[in-house]
């Protein structure tokens, strides 16, 4: 029964779990209370309020701020990985210029 109890947590615990669990992040954005309950993270009320405000603020970001964030998203996308994902089928890079 002990394992059924909620674990006392802070925002950093929520962050760590969101980093490793995609579904948890999405649940958190839909309904933070129910997402925390489901994973048995007991966040004290002040932290819970802070977390909700933080998420809400980002959910409503618009205009220039949104652009700034999506640009940083693109920069991450272009980071190299080894091995790479499938390259675009319509592109070939020539080893040396044809001239």
């Amino acid at each position: 029964m002990e394992s059924q109890k909620s674990k006392r947590a802070d925002i950093n615990d929520v962050y760590k779990l969101a980093c490793t669990d995609e579904k948890f992040l999405d649940a958190l954005l839909t309904n933070a209370d129910s997402a925390l309950e489901k994973v048995r993270l007991n966040l004290p009320e002040p932290d819970r309020k802070k977390l909700k405000e933080m998420l809400e603020e980002k959910m409503t970001v618009t205009g220039g701020d949104l652009l700034k964030y999506t640009h940083s998203f693109y920069n991450s996308l272009m980071k190299s990985t080894n091995p790479p994902p499938p390259p675009p089928p319509w592109r070939i890079e020539l080893q040396k210029p044809l001239r």
Partner: peptide
């Protein structure tokens, strides 16, 4: 196999980016 690994790595990077955006 390599492509799948590449997709997983990019997907992980992008997920981290999303988490950092919110937190």
């Amino acid at each position: 196999h390599d492509y799948r690994e590449g997709v997983n790595k990019i997907a992980f990077i992008i997920h981290q980016q999303r988490v950092n955006f919110f937190f």
